[in-house]
Simulated assay, not measured.
Amino acid sequence: MKRVLIILIALILVIYQGMSQDWSEGQSVFESDAEKELLLSQAQPIDLLKALHAKDEVDMKQFEKLTEKLDKKADKKHFVEWFVGEVFHKSHQYVLKNYHRHSTFNETLERGAYDCVSGSAVLGLLLDRYGFDFEIIETDFHVFVLVHDNDKTYVLESTEPLSGFIKDQDEVKDYIAVFMPRKQNQSKRDRSELAGLSDRAGEENTIYSSISLKELAGLQYYNDAILHFNEGQQGTALKQLKKAKGIYPSDRVNAFDQYLSQLESESKKLARR
């Protein structure tokens, strides 16, 4: 047992040092000490989600009210469809107030502003708290949540507070089918990989991945990098992307990293002329 513990500690140190080195090459990529502490601690998914534009203290009152309300009903969670519906609707009653693109998880906790990423994060944290079998689904331009119960699957679409809990099984299949990938050429795939979540709709699909809460935190940084790049803030975009890559080095994150690295290299060449 002691030997196993020593090996685990050694592995954690190796991972910590590797991430620290990757994120601190040259100029620091961290906005604040609070962000650095949350990212490098790698403690819980909620810490990684709170790291984007981190604050020394985040007001958790509404989220705590929500969990208190659901905790009182948790002894009936074996009525899966009913309890998952409670998770969905109470989340919108207490925390998910106003849809706003590119809202951070901290803004969701404090002001109720949310998008598909931060909204799915709240739902995912609650489903994890109560031990449900769930998936967070990443697509080209959207994120949503699936809950599995034996032969049934439920959709939790955070951006639709009234109709986003989908329980009819035919409707569930139809909803999922909309996001399933279809064959497309490489140029369309490249455009999808360099697009932000919640930015477009109606494009052909290339991405349909089941991801963890931790990986969702990486997507939050990726989305923020896209936002800053579109606003002409390439330096900030690069910093955010490094953090996204440290958490979740997916194909789309790596594609954007290669793209920005190429732009940076070309800019340096022009500057030397």
Rank of each mutant, 00 (worst) to 15 (best):
Q184L: 15
R182M: 10
G26E: 07
C116Q: 09
L156T: 11
I6M: 00
L8S: 04
K65H: 13
K76I: 07
S28V: 04
K77D: 03
H89A: 07
E57W: 00
N230S: 07
L197V: 15
E64A: 11
Y259P: 06
L197D: 07
Q42H: 00
F179K: 10
S265Q: 14
N230I: 01
N150A: 12
L260C: 07
L270I: 08
K269L: 13
L5I: 02
Y114C: 04
K50C: 09
Q184D: 08
R191Q: 12
K55S: 10
D115C: 08
R3K: 10
L263C: 10
M19C: 03
K167C: 03
D174R: 14
L11V: 13
F229H: 14
T67P: 02
Q169I: 11
R3H: 03
D115M: 07
A51W: 03
A225D: 03
F83R: 10
Q234W: 03
F165A: 06
S198L: 01
S120E: 04
A43N: 02
G131A: 09
A217C: 01
Y130V: 12
I247D: 05
V117F: 01
N223S: 08
M1R: 03
Y208A: 06
I137P: 07
A54D: 02
I136G: 02
N150C: 00
V14I: 15
K55A: 11
V178N: 13
L216D: 00
S28D: 12
V4D: 01
F229C: 06
D71A: 14
Y99H: 04
K243R: 14
R189L: 11
S187R: 08
E37W: 03
E203G: 07
D170C: 00
I15V: 15
M19I: 13
Q44F: 00
V58M: 03
K61L: 04
A34C: 04
F63W: 12
K73D: 04
S209N: 12
Y16G: 00
I12M: 07
Q184F: 04
Q220E: 11
Q44D: 04
Y248F: 15
A51M: 08
L241S: 09
F79W: 12
I9E: 07
G26P: 01
L125C: 05
K2F: 01
Q169G: 09
A225T: 03
H142I: 14
Y130M: 05
V178H: 15
H142V: 14
E37D: 09
L52I: 11
E138Q: 14
D128R: 08
G124E: 03
L38D: 02
S267H: 04
H92D: 08
L238A: 13
G124N: 05
I137F: 08
E215M: 00
A113E: 15
L52P: 08
T108W: 00
T108N: 03
K97N: 05
V4N: 00
K77G: 07
R182A: 13
F105Q: 06
G112F: 04
E264W: 05
S192P: 00
S163K: 14
L123K: 05
E264M: 09
F105K: 06
L48K: 08
L213C: 00
E231W: 14
D257K: 10
L162K: 15
E31K: 12
S209R: 11
A271G: 01
K76F: 12
M180S: 11
D71T: 13
Q17T: 05
H100I: 04
F229L: 15
L109P: 04
D224L: 03
S28I: 06
